[in-house]
Design a protein around this nucleic acid. Sequence first.
DNA 1: ATGAAAGCGCTAACAT
DNA 2: ATGTTAGCGCTTTCAT
Lengths: 351, 351
Amino acid sequence: MPGTQDDDAPRGVPTLHDVARLAGVSIKTVSEVVNRTGRVAAATAARVESAIASIGYQPNLSARRLRTGRTGVVGLAVPELSLSGYFNELSAAVVRIAAERGLTVLIEQTGGTREGELRALRGPRRSVMDGLLINAVALDEQDVQDLGPLGPTVVLGERRLGPQLDHVTFGNEEAARLVTEHLLGLGRRHILVLTGDPAVSASAARRLAGHHQALAAAGLAPAAGLVRVVAVWDHAAGYRHVVEAHRGGPSFDAVLAVNDSLALGALRALHDLGVDVPGTVAVAGIDDVVDARFSHPRLTTVDPHRDVLAELAVRTLTERIADRRRPGAVHEIEAHLRVRGSTLASAEPPG
Amino acid sequence: MPGTQDDDAPRGVPTLHDVARLAGVSIKTVSEVVNRTGRVAAATAARVESAIASIGYQPNLSARRLRTGRTGVVGLAVPELSLSGYFNELSAAVVRIAAERGLTVLIEQTGGTREGELRALRGPRRSVMDGLLINAVALDEQDVQDLGPLGPTVVLGERRLGPQLDHVTFGNEEAARLVTEHLLGLGRRHILVLTGDPAVSASAARRLAGHHQALAAAGLAPAAGLVRVVAVWDHAAGYRHVVEAHRGGPSFDAVLAVNDSLALGALRALHDLGVDVPGTVAVAGIDDVVDARFSHPRLTTVDPHRDVLAELAVRTLTERIADRRRPGAVHEIEAHLRVRGSTLASAEPPG
DNA sequence: ATGAAAGCGCTAACAT
DNA sequence: ATGTTAGCGCTTTCAT
């Protein structure tokens, strides 16, 4: 009985077959039109194009991936997206630059923990992405060795996680050294340091190291009572620790925070305590987040050139995806000091 | 010639077949063990588990998706990730809550443009995700109708984009009304308004409407010279427009900004201009970003309860994915005023 | 220049 | 309780 079968059922999402049937060609031809590969007669191509438009065909990326191994999706794993301002602005830059190259970004928050980072590096999610950018803070090289081969991966931030991986790092030591030298140059000798736990965070460890180098170069030793370790690098922690340090403990004439959120919290605390900034206490951070340029006073900090980092990271990942065999590359981005009113009154506009 | 063929080549990424061969079972059994579906003898399961562990098998999500139509990936489309603080914190909340439910988030920046939002709604990327959360600001209902059926979609923010879609909205009008009433209650009568273009941004339009409602309720009309339309809702725009408004144009005793970034920029500008806040000019924003609690003075604003919004959004999307047929739901989240030092000196701690 | 068909890794219906 | 197999939508060799 002819006509009984539902031969041209375009029920759900349209596929290549639907387009082919409508245009009266084979699916191969449609595929070639979609991908601009092979040569298709102009007339045929036009017919296919209009069929595509008329039923609103969109290629199924999962099927394409299954066939080609490419999705156009890359992962970005960061400790946290909004606590620090830094990862927020970094993520925005990565998403923007990836989009320029036709890539979409899948974001994962690792919580800055070893487990979280391992999951990002090796979890089943990797099978939907072409490559991964990971800002690892807790992992060490041994963890990575144990994991075995990983698929295209670029490590951001400090840790060198093994020669097989690409790294785009930022001069963490240099950043802390620059700020410390600046504070010492202003005659400050009692620097309160707000840092993450160096045993947990590689970045904290490196920044602390840079700070100590600068102190040593000036013939100074770190003051035991003036280092405060925070669990979370956010405004609230900066605020709390400065209030506590002011209440008890040795007096200080400067605050050096390992990131701007801590520094901005510190700034706010000093206001509430009635301490003059920068007169009595100078404050500096690291990261140059947007709010550092609008705080009162504006915050002296170090610019990590996130845009450069994001650009380099995406490019390195793309190259790695294209050639999995080449040796791991290491790019280091130079940091620059931004002196503002929180350390130097004359750097602040009148007001 | 026997032994020539590379029969057990486990070359690349391990598959179900590799596990099955190693455990001496069929791929169906492996699949059942992986998915905890059907019943598999404990001994067999154990054998399979150890095979999985030994070769580090991870399911290929693209293949699974092709078969089942599920990836565990949801999209989040926002205008911009880092300009406003709001989307940053919202994204972080969405990523966190999605992760709790075993979902990963694919982030897209639409630039707040119609094209960008259409692309997010309908582009080929949709085929790698189970559903989409979109904070649309430029799209209207007609655009969506033209697109045809869309796949699971939850719209965040203001616009009602059609009855077939789920919406999780925030009381934009109410928010602006609350702030305006607060400013009027303080005796301020000349409110400088910093807003996005209401013709472009639905949120701006609603917030402006709420502002006008409050004015009207007090028997006041909006002052023509005191509304400044910004292109980008960021700190720099807030700063620039306040400086310009102060230089020329009618004088004002309050600033109402449609978001906190603009308000924080305004705060900074007033400092530089030597204008006392809140004495001479009161400043208020909307969004309650983290920095609003650490600025000097702290910023009066409206809390949109992002965590609640994110939670509700992810839940609604999950339900929509599970049942595509049910009618569109609309959830509206109530906004709350947070009065701080930028409008009320007594709300600021001593300092 | 175009078509036919194999197969990517997986799930599930169907067999045993 | 376990195995066999079709087919999801796509790209791509191999024919024509």
